[in-house]
């Protein structure tokens, strides 16, 4: 009996020592990692200057309807009558008929302001983030249309499925204090 108790004591002592070492190690690692981090949370965002509007955002998001939508920086927009983001490259006629629009869901609302200017607004409930208009705007317009992760929809997955599929490494982790990468008037940033 005495022998086995001694054995038990030795075993429990060893376990205690290992446990303390484990606790210390984990505490140390935790402190090290948190001390080095700026203790901030991240969210995903698209760098519009890297994005090539390939269309992956529309299909790779884990949500049925992508969290990525198109936004328009109005200060940069040319308010063109002939908007290459709005019209199909070979339109039947230059009106808002569905067959003339580039957007597959008709999510761009074209409103007449004053001759010859038109305002182009994105209806986010319709936008699927395919980026077709972004390509059109970048190619022939001012590049005021671009894709952004909308944080009311984004689930902030630990690893963003679109980021994995992004061909231009445009998806970046951004501090939550500043969750958007909007283009500005000074757009050569």
């Amino acid at each position: 009996m005495g022998e086995s108790r001694k054995e038990m004591n030795r075993r429990s002592l060893l376990q205690d020592a290992l446990r303390s070492a484990g606790l210390l190690g984990m505490g140390g690692a935790f402190g090290f990692l948190i001390g080095r981090a700026q203790a901030q949370q991240y969210c995903w965002q698209i760098d519009p200057y890297k994005c090539i509007a390939c269309g992956n955002c529309a299909t790779y998001c884990v949500l049925e309807e992508s969290a990525v939508k198109c936004v328009n920086t109005f200060e940069m927009c040319g308010y063109c009558k002939l908007c290459t983001a709005f019209f199909d490259p070979a339109p039947q006629a230059l009106n808002t008929g569905a067959e003339n629009q580039l957007c597959p869901t008709g999510a761009i609302i074209r409103t007449f302001l004053e001759d010859p200017y038109y305002e182009y607004k994105i209806d986010e409930s319709l936008c699927i983030g395919c980026g077709k208009c972004v390509v059109g705007c970048k190619a022939f317009g001012n590049g005021s249309l671009y894709l952004q992760v909308r944080h009311d929809r984004c689930l902030n997955c630990n690893e963003c499925a679109i980021a994995v599929a992004c061909p231009s490494e445009a998806f970046i982790r951004t501090p939550v204090e500043n969750p958007y990468r909007l283009k500005g008037k000074n757009h050569s940033a």
Partner: peptide, 27 residues
Amino acid sequence: FAQDIERFPPPDFDSGYVFPQIQKPLP
């Protein structure tokens, strides 16, 4: 693609049009 070019300078509106704000829903 490499850079945005301001091909069409944003217009000066006569009608007193103000630029709409971009909605920025927070995480």
